[in-house]
Design a protein around this nucleic acid. Structure first.
Lengths: 348, 348
DNA sequence: GCATATATAGAAAGCGCTTGCTGCATGCAT
DNA sequence: ATGCATGCAGCAAGCGCTTTCTATATATGC
């Protein structure tokens, strides 16, 4: 049989209440008593029953982190930073919290189901990372869930996702549009006029914002965009590879390829290389995010750095109530243009 | 106030017991009654209280996944595969389970703390991924914890980690030694005789086994290893970069660099390139794991492919009791040598 | 038709913990 | 000496569910 609080109490010759208080450290207990209790805990190798205490105290020590794809470092880095701040083992306070990383795989239903599961567990906080799906009914359903969670006392933080109005959620939004604009402006500045764009999946805020930034830059410089220059795909390398071949087929005269993110850009580079094109001499390539591998690409990738780690850490602290939420509950996190070897002047 | 089972029962004009049974579907309930209950659940927007039901039923729907570094795709890929199998949202069965991904950061204390936290939550299963720390007292402590977990009914599975004898844990072990041997044999076969080795952190089984494989290959071919040829570091790109510079300083005549994993190999490649050495003409490079980015390195990386996704999926199924554990509780997962552009004959 | 098996629903006893309240010693001021 | 804070420990009432056992109603067999 498993050891219970009562067993410890019996062994330490105190009441269960006292044991509970020693363990939670939220009520004065005489030093000698505490000593005795701790010894008993140790001797019996007692481990608190989480569900029972969550039930009695009406709070749990679970913190949910929703990510679109845990195998993608973009999310891994944020998740890691969030987790390091939520005070799990190694964190500061004794109040140990368990981070629950949930992989939605970009599926709306899963996102909702996980949110319900977290609500069911009475999570202490929930952090949603990455772009949101733009499907209207789904967005409404998520907003409703977030509101419910908030009402139940769960702190909700969005990290790298647009604000969710009227939900009480705090938002740390990435300036995807601004980053996209800067990136394309950089290429235009180099002289490019025929730019392919490999966008992410449709109906995603991140996809849309980055693309809008790109188009704003084109428009600002009076460049008419050819619809053939935009291809949609997934946020992975493979997709970048295929999309690039498609782009090349549609218009071999492109002098630059802008990708939705770094993984896509790497795939694009591979496709260009295999097509006999040199980077950046024949075609320039640009990514987004500045993931760790981007600097090692050959040539190293021009991209927009997003402070994933910093943003994640901040989101984690806000979720734990250890940092003031931004004024108005919303903060914009800007990216930084990283000009590297993959972009150059267009070929003549 | 939050809605409880009793509220639903009242609304549906049945007893709480009946509601519980409808929700759990583990007891016959007349169709019309079920109907009525479900409608009430819906109307009240009721969500089961997880801790309460875990307490009453003495089981929880949490599954723990321990990883060393969630920002590293090596772990991300395994975690993703495990999670996809544990039947969370999108999985098969209705019994929805919540995956708890815990990031130990390679710290023994955290590993232990997370295990305790999982024990406290009465997790349904726990999967430990990646190499184990070899520190003896720690290993014993972990083994004791695993045994406890097992006794409490938590299924424990090791994925990519050596077996833990007498703990009742199932193990899917990677054949790191064999992979290391093959890789180095490949290089020796090409004619290399002076091979640098960038090992991972000490006191890690993965590090040791890969290094042992390397040395076995050297020994088998009568190559005396110079102690200067081995450098220890972390499992990241940065470490590979620095270690390579160190290796080059110690012995500029090396013709190949074998890295502990792909990230390290990429860092090594960068260092070589910056030192004016061509790959593979001047120095060959090899990695381990075959992560997605390895094929995109320039030149593409010779490495040992580990079926991370497959192994993770299998570990997940075993953890859920949906697949027979391997005979004896232990299975070895072999890697596959991937010969690519980064390895070639040594320079003259 | 009567006894027995078969479905379905309810009553109630916990699951193991937290916490408001009460109680009893002390310590201090008067 | 008496009274009153004060510090520490215990009592006991739940927290919201699950589940065993019991009760009723209907179906079945002879």
């Amino acid at each position: 049989m498993t050891v219970t609080l009562a067993d410890v109490a019996a062994r330490a010759q105190v009441s269960p209440a006292t044991v509970s208080r020693v363990l939670n450290g939220n009520y004065p207990v005489a030093a000698t008593t505490r000593e005795r209790v701790l010894r008993a805990v140790d001797e019996l190798d007692y481990v608190l029953n989480g569900p029972a205490s969550a039930l009695a105290a009406a709070t749990s020590d679970l913190v949910g982190i929703l990510v679109n794809d845990i195998a993608d470092p973009f999310f891994g880095i944020m998740a890691s930073a969030i987790q390091s701040e939520i005070g799990g083992p190694g964190g500061r306070a004794g109040g140990e919290r368990l981070a629950v990383v949930c992989n939605t795989g970009g599926s709306p239903e899963r996102e909702l189901t996980y949110l319900t599961l977290l609500q069911r567990q009475r999570a202490a906080a929930v952090v949603l990372t990455g772009g949101a799906m733009e499907n209207a009914p789904h967005a409404a359903a998520v907003a409703a869930k977030l509101r419910k969670l908030g009402e139940a006392g769960t702190r909700v933080v969005l990290c790298g996702r647009p604000p969710a109005p009227d939900t009480g959620a705090f938002a740390l939004t990435f300036d995807n549009r601004g980053g996209g604009r800067e990136l394309t402006e950089h290429l235009i500045g180099l002289g490019h006029r025929r730019l392919g764009y490999i966008a992410g999946p449709e109906e995603r805020t991140t996809t849309r914002h980055r693309l809008e930034g790109h188009r704003e830059a084109l428009a600002a410089h009076g460049i008419d965009e050819d619809p053939r220059w935009t291809v949609h795909g997934r946020y992975d390398r493979r997709s970048g590879y295929e999309a690039t071949l498609e782009l090349l087929r549609r218009d071999p005269s492109l002098t630059a390829v802008v990708a939705a993110n770094d993984s896509v850009a790497v795939g694009a580079s591979a496709a260009l290389r295999e097509s006999g094109l040199r980077i950046p001499d024949d075609v320039s390539v640009a990514g987004f995010d500045d993931l760790p591998f981007s600097v090692d690409a050959v040539p190293s990738l021009t991209t927009v750095r997003l402070p994933l780690s910093e943003a994640g850490a901040r989101a984690g602290r806000i979720a734990m109530g250890r940092e003031e939420p931004p004024p108005g509950g919303i903060a914009t996190v800007r990216g930084e243009l990283m000009v590297r070897g993959s972009s150059g002047v267009p070929r003549k």
